[in-house]
Design a protein around this nucleic acid. Structure first.
Length: 650
RNA sequence: GGCUCCGUAGCUUAAUGGAUAGAGCAUCUGACUACGGAUCAGAAGGUUAGAGGUUCGAGUCCUCUCGGAGUCACCA
């Protein structure tokens, strides 16, 4: 009985340990027993690698394989046969085992998921700035965050979904100022523009006006006086020359004309070297924006009102995008509430010697023995920096929810920041410090190069979503499978297909890898795509609809001999819980994506080669129906873990 | 320059240290009076950036070189 409820691979593992002890008198650890699914070209279901046992037994790997094989067949009920190829012992599992397994799971819609364990986790994702709409980079972030939440939940955690909204600072002040100066009282309603895009336009407008102002200033006498000495330094000139070379190369690669661009040292100076200084010290617009930030910090009512107005527009727009992506949050943390947090902790840590104070009054931490650097946590004027706020926010979250695991979904440009943050939390002896994890993901590039919001080369999230849905619609119009449905029903299906294409295309890539996003490929509906997997599911639904009057499926129990295509499917279904476990342990949804694709592929092949409803006998038909139902459930669950919905028809 | 990450077919990518590196796209060839062809089967395409090393066994671990990215703020 116990054996029945245990995982077959753990049974094999345990049995191998016993075998090694009985045959060779050696104790081995369970992780030295390597068990994998047998490769397709060989006979068998599971493979034990016998190379590691050569030393302790003094025998050849082949002989060990034979001895272990005999032992396992004699001792383990469901192992019926074995064969040995070099150091690989291939074990054959009985059809009975697989058929029993299928009986046990085919109606269980939560197969693969663990019950709640009482442990709590938190996932922070999306976390946008409130000065412009969401773009492709946010989409990767959101998909990873959402999927991580789903996977952790399936792993038994109670998960809280949060974002930290960067709703304050100079960026939003730029949008506010541009609206105040140039907006003429326009609103998203009056202009008919989606409200977050509306705010984003003013951010862009600010940058445009600032550039014009800067350009004009460059012709003035003070500018020339600043430039002249810089031009005399040979080091500067060589830097400028290198910059010019790099820029020219980039243009050539993109096939853009080189002649029109300005690559003089002057251009380099004003573009790359002096821009920030100009903004901070000379710019009239810069001065106004900074003044606005000061008024905001001082709590000036009119400024706060404008700020609330602009942000509420942005939130309405964000929510619309989140809705389209099927994403919700349990709690929002606003930077305007949290940016002063952490200071008390630093003061306290200062007493305990975790931090130290420099003569100028700034407070630091020495992390050199952890392979890191010295890091400032309070400025000399006593105000806090970015990391101070993160210290306080982590503590606040622990107080709010009691979570011992916090996952931050943030791009890899902040790797160092999180290394430092987590090290600080450890030294502060926070009870959850071991459970902090940075889910770091690579930035998204376009075939034409990097996305840069200032250069207008970002892919907008709303545009992209609309585009993939339109592509699904175009493709569907060439078929007539949905003609009897209402327009609303058809639209709902198009949305599921288009989003599946987009989401799967992004989430199938390992998070850590920087990815090149080709819009043309993201709307593909064939091959290794979301719609391919949906299509397998739709086929299953269609068969089940046709089979509904058949009743009990009792004859499946009499099915005796499985076909290879069926066993491959069974073995893949059997692996589902383990895949969820791995994805959860590694915080890596791409495992689930690969799994779903492989399962769909196996099903498509099985479906093509074997008739389900027209099977030779009732036993085979019922068995195959069960197998289809189980596959459908797992596909739906697996895709749900990626945030992808399955249509019943398409 | 220091530190970190990445480099796999033309392109996008997969592979708890294990068998002949697995897919998809694109290219070429087949399979539709069909349980839904958004499918299936096949061909062709690889010195896993390069050189050493550890190991019975290396795409994976170690060292170096080359190429790309990120970071090294009293910015966030």
């Amino acid at each position: 009985m116990l054996i029945r409820s245990m995982n077959i691979t753990s049974i094999i593992q345990q049995s191998v340990i016993e075998a090694v002890q009985e045959l060779y008198g050696a104790m081995i650890a369970s992780d030295s027993v390597q068990i994998t699914a047998t490769r397709k070209d060989f006979q068998g279901d599971y493979t034990v690698v016998t190379f590691p046992f050569t030393k302790l037994s003094g025998k050849k790997p082949e002989d060990i394989g034979i001895e272990l094989g005999n032992f396992l067949v004699a001792r383990v009920p469901h192992i019926t046969d074995y064969n040995v190829v070099k150091g690989f012992l291939n074990l054959v599992i009985s059809d009975r085992f697989w058929i029993d397994f299928l009986q046990a799971i085919y109606e269980n819609e939560d197969y693969g998921c663990k019950p709640l364990s009482g442990e709590k986790a938190m996932v922070e994702f999306s976390s946008p700035n409130t000065n412009k709409p969401l773009h492709l980079g946010h989409i990767r972030n959101i998909l990873l965050g959402w999927s991580t939440y789903k996977i952790l939940e399936a792993s038994g955690f109670e998960v809280t979904r949060v974002q930290i909204v960067n709703d304050r600072g100079i960026a939003i002040c730029k949008s506010m100022l541009a609206w105040q100066k140039f907006g003429e009282g326009a609103t998203p309603e009056s202009s008919g523009i989606k409200s977050d895009h509306f705010v984003g336009r003013f951010y862009v407008l600010f940058e445009k006006r600032f550039k014009e102002e800067y350009k004009a200033w460059q012709q003035t006498e003070p500018a020339k006086q600043i430039l002249a000495p810089w031009l005399l330094d040979a080091k500067n000139l060589s830097k400028a020359a290198k910059w010019a070379e790099d820029e020219k190369k980039k243009l050539l690669e993109k096939g853009l004309p080189v002649e029109e661009a300005d690559f003089t040292p002057e251009a380099y100076f004003f573009k790359e070297v002096y821009k920030n200084t100009y903004f901070n010290e000379y710019s009239a617009l810069g001065k106004e924006a900074k003044a606005m930030l000061l008024r905001w910090e001082a709590g000036d009512p009119a400024t706060l009102e404008l700020w609330r107005q602009m942000n509420s527009w942005v939130y309405a727009g964000f929510n619309d995008t989140y809705n389209k992506l099927g994403v919700v949050f349990d709690k929002l943390y606003f930077e305007s509430d949290t940016y002063l947090l952490g200071k008390d902790t630093v003061e306290e840590g200062l007493q305990h010697g975790v931090f130290y104070k420099k003569p100028d009054g700034s407070v630091w931490i020495d992390l050199e023995d952890a392979g890191l650097d010295h890091k400032v946590v309070l400025r000399s004027d006593g105000t806090s920096v970015y990391i101070t706020q993160d210290i306080g926010t982590a503590q606040l979250r622990y107080r709010d929810f009691g979570v011992k695991r916090m996952i931050y979904v943030v791009a890899d440009e902040q790797n160092y920041h999180f290394q430092v943050l987590f090290e600080i939390m450890k030294r502060l002896k926070e009870p959850y410090s071991e459970g902090l994890h940075h889910l770091s993901y690579g930035m998204v590039d376009l075939p034409s190069g990097k996305m840069k919001s200032r250069e207008g080369t970002v892919v907008d999230a709303d545009d992209l979503i609309a585009e993939v849905i339109q592509e699904a619609r175009n493709d569907s119009s060439e078929r007539d499978t949905l003609a009897d449905l209402s327009v609303a029903e058809q639209n709902a299906i198009m949305q599921k297909i288009g989003l599946a294409a987009l989401k799967f295309h992004i989430i199938k890539v390992h998070p850590k890898k920087r990815m090149t996003f080709d819009p043309k490929e993201s709307v593909d509906l064939q091959g290794q795509t979301g719609p391919y997997i949906q299509n397998a599911y739709v086929r299953i639904r269609s068969v089940i609809r046709k089979a509904e009057q058949l009743g009990s499926l009792a004859a499946a129990a009499e099915y005796a001999q499985t076909e290879p295509a069926e066993k491959e499917l069974l073995a893949q279904l059997y692996a589902f819980p383990e895949v969820i476990e791995t994805a959860g342990k590694e915080y890596d949804p791409s495992h689930i994506a690969a799994y779903c694709y492989n399962l769909a592929k196996l099903f498509h092949r099985f479906y093509h080669d074997h008739s389900i409803l027209g099977a030779a006998n009732e036993a085979a038909r019922d068995f195959r129906l069960m197998l289809s139902m189980a596959t459908g459930n797992v596909l739906r669950k697996g895709m749900d873990l990626l945030g992808i919905e399955m249509p019943d028809r398409m």
